[in-house]
Design a binder for these strands. Structure first.
Lengths: 177, 177
DNA sequence: ATCAGCATGTAAGGCGTTACATGATTCA
DNA sequence: TGAATCATGTAACGCCTTACATGCTGAT
């Protein structure tokens, strides 16, 4: 059996928690795992079709307030596929930081530019950190539920690393001045 | 002028420091910026062709020990392009961590699996951290040179974040047990 | 009325990886 | 002599992003 692509696993993971539409998935991805994983409509909808063809999910039309939508549901096969993926050791973890690239090649311009690039990065991190911290705080109260615990742990990963980023930013700026 | 793709900037950045072959570039990428940026031959060679067509780099044949190789050199135009990229604020910084995905969707399996996945991640981080720490140490002695300073700072970014990862790993494992 | 948001999709292109193909040289 | 490494490339495919296309609903 060929290795499923990751967006498929994201979809299965979301549906394992509750039924939803493709549109819901996009939103859910954006504001829960968005800081380390992305999805786009051009990505999600074709994957939904593919997953349904493989019987890993099943669609049902629902009309909410007269509007038609397609709600997806995970099948037993889908749950099995999700579990198999979770049980694989293999995981690709990629960092792709253009800001670091710019720093590394800083010799192509002047130190002021390097510092400025760090500041741009820092600002973005600071904003995202604020959001993640609030998220963590709101999750702290319901860690008895496993799903919330997992959610909390991923958010807390973000908080820890973003704080490390900020620490590094100050140090780097100091050394460049 | 269309935005150049990043591999092009990586190549210009490398050549801005010294002339080299495509093969050299691959090696250089792997063991200096490899932890946050990748390159492959199927990526580099076509980019070299493209850059030369745009007169950003220039090739010269050299025979070393009877073997032919193609050594590239950055042009004034290339240096300008590199500088322009460095001066752009825009930078895409992407984290794509399948391990976090597996944790987030941990509900699809059991806690033991979640813990195991964290351990797999932890082990990889621990190894990479060792390499980065050695690199940092060896660079600490020559920070008066700007290129070394930039190199040191990127490596130190890796050390700081990987240490944060490890800290998070222990915490996460504790909470899951 | 108009605009934001809901909802679903397609097309084209970007950018990268993996695998393949080829052949020379160096070292054990 | 055989394996590793040097060295250059191509082809196919994977996977995602961006932009486009369409039309509804609910709120102001």
């Amino acid at each position: 059996m060929a290795r499923e692509k990751r967006i498929n696993m994201v979809i299965l993971g979301l549906l394992n928690h509750e039924d939803m539409t493709g549109y819901d998935m996009k939103k859910r991805i954006d504001n829960s795992i968005g800081f380390f994983w992305n999805g786009s409509f051009g990505n999600i909808y074709p994957a939904l079709k593919e997953l349904e063809e493989g019987s890993l999910i099943k669609s049902a039309s629902a009309s909410v307030g007269g509007r038609e939508k397609i709600v997806y549901h995970i099948t037993a096969q889908g749950k099995k596929a999700l579990k198999e993926w979770l049980k694989e050791d293999q995981a690709s973890n990629e960092l792709r930081y253009e800001s670091l690239l710019k720093l590394f090649f800083g010799g192509g311009a002047d130190r002021g530019t390097a510092i400025h690039n760090i500041e741009v990065f820092e600002e973005k991190v600071r904003q995202d950190l604020g959001v993640l911290k609030m998220l963590c705080k709101s999750l702290e109260d319901c860690l008895d539920n496993d799903d919330h615990l997992y959610y909390y742990l991923t958010a807390s990963f973000g908080v820890e690393t973003y704080e490390a980023y900020l620490k590094w930013c100050s140090k780097a700026k100091k050394m460049l001045k």
